[in-house]
Design a protein around this nucleic acid. Structure first.
Length: 424
RNA sequence: GGAGGAGUGGCCGAGUGGUUGAAGGCGGCGGUCUUGAAAACCGUUGAGCGCAAGCUCCGGGGGUUCGAAUCCCUCCUCCUCCGCCA
């Protein structure tokens, strides 16, 4: 959520920053409503003040045994007017807030302009894509040929975009997750955390999934809970409505969790294989920092995600998303894309974002600065990494001519020393 | 799921309709004392909105009243007992 005061004071700057994301947003109606709201609020406050003073006088009169009936009648009227006015203020405030909740974050000045994917800027390429002297197969073909991946049976019980895999592939999923968590906790200073997979609307609002993106979420209507699309939601909201002691920052948490996404509007995209599923696993890194540290924290976070790919010896590139391709709450995002031989291109495997105070304002996450004043933190998060897609990358990059899959060295200890996956 | 109890400031805890944003204690901060520290003593110490006056906030929402932390309704959370259960 944007700072309403900042919009009031810099309407043109905000409008032009928002325009960089594409589309056009007219802030005038919002500002008018806000001004109207504040006019009425100060009127209501004046009435309330009068009421409070009179209340004191009535109390005094009562004590001294004087007659207060006249005052009572007068106050009744003022009270009614005050109440009506206050109600209108509340309605207006809610309206303003609801509009505010629909505004995306302001892109950082350093973010490249652009309308979509094509305008993203590549920062660096790391590693060399492997060369095969045979035609590289897609992971789903490899998996099914190995008899370890089954989309048909998964569809039987859950429909499209669900998968089942077994044996060494299932174990590799677990190995990848464990490897990632171990790396982040032992070398990158993250603390591992388990948090709820079902959360309430307040949490979804805090990180920005609601109210705008309800269609992307699975909802359990019976209990008014949502399945998390990423652990970012539960982990970040762990600190909602808190004022953290300044010395606790930075907070770095890593969480493994399943993620659930309806993928509404992605019909026909990535219909084969594990790339785009309704349910997948991800290790998520969440960082809470002081405002002046968030820029550096984004680079650090990106580096932590990259470290996983380096250890797995997978080729990747890092790109900065342009204004038109960034997520709703993002001020600046780096995507990491891993090389997929069968697709002959890089595909997203991690997204690292600096939200600045956008989420903190929605969720109410603050810290006490040196002066003892509560101030909004900056929040960041990044995939470290998407486990399903990491499995895809390993399968495709480590495939053998015989249809087997070599197990990356760093994963072997997690797989009982297994070096090659063959058809059982 | 059933029965009962409770939700007050960073924490503990008083407060059952009238200057109570809220006694007291702990903790924090500042000071006195001390070579220094501890102890003791004194002072100070919530947040949001507003240029300010001022207004709001005692789990959330609603109601009664001139006036509510205090009364009523409702929801949520926690605790105890019973039931069920990975």
């Amino acid at each position: 959520m944007l700072d309403l005061r900042h919009i009031r004071e810099n309407p043109e700057a905000v409008a032009s920053a928002l325009a960089r994301r594409g589309g056009s947003i007219d802030l005038a109606p919002l500002l008018e409503r806000d001004a109207e709201c504040r006019r009425m609020a100060s009127e209501a406050e004046a009435l309330k003040a009068e009421q409070n003073r009179a209340s004191g006088r009535i109390a005094e009169a009562r004590r001294s045994g004087a007659d207060a009936t006249e005052m009572l009648a007068a106050m009744k009227q003022i009270g009614d007017r005050q109440k009506a006015l206050a109600e209108q203020v509340k309605t207006l405030e809610e309206l303003v807030r609801n509009e505010l909740l629909l505004l995306p974050n302001l892109p950082d000045a350093s973010v490249p302009d652009g309308g979509g994917e094509a305008d993203n800027v590549e920062l660096r390429r790391v590693g060399t894509p492997p060369r095969f002297d045979f035609v590289a197969k897609p992971h789903d073909e490899l998996g099914e040929a190995l008899g370890l991946m089954d989309f048909t049976r998964a569809a039987k019980i859950s429909g499209a975009r669900f998968a089942s895999y077994s044996g060494a592939l299932a174990r590799m999923e677990r190995a990848l997750a464990a490897f990632m968590l171990d790396l982040h906790t032992s070398e990158h200073g993250f603390t591992e955390v388990v948090a709820p997979y079902l959360v309430n609307a307040r949490a979804m609002l805090g990180t920005g999934q609601l109210p705008k993106f309800a269609d992307d979420l699975f909802k359990v209507t019976e209990d008014d809970l949502y399945l998390i699309p990423t652990a970012e939601v539960s982990v970040t909201n762990l600190f909602a409505d808190e004022v953290l002691p300044g010395e606790q920052l930075p907070i770095r948490l890593a969480a493994f969790s399943p993620c659930f996404r309806r993928e509404a509007g992605s019909y026909g995209k990535d219909t084969r294989g594990l790339i785009r599923q309704h349910q997948f696993h991800k290790v998520e890194m969440v960082t809470l920092v002081r405002p002046e540290e968030s820029e550096a924290a984004l680079e650090r976070l990106t580096g932590c995600a990259e470290a996983v790919l380096k250890r797995l010896n997978l080729a990747y590139r890092v790109i900065t998303l342009c204004t038109g391709d960034m997520g709703f709450g993002s001020a600046r995002t780096h995507d990491i894309e891993v090389w997929l031989p069968a697709q002959d291109r890089y595909r997203e495997i991690s997204s690292c974002t600096n939200f600045r105070d956008f989420q903190a304002r929605r969720a109410g996450i603050r810290f006490k600065d040196a002066g003892g004043k509560p101030q909004l933190v900056h929040t960041l998060n990044g995939s470290g990494l998407a486990v399903g897609r990491a499995l895809v990358a390993v399968m495709e990059n480590y495939q053998r001519v015989d249809g087997g899959i070599d197990v990356p060295e760093v994963l072997q200890p997690y797989m009982g020393g297994l070096k090659v996956i063959h058809r059982p």
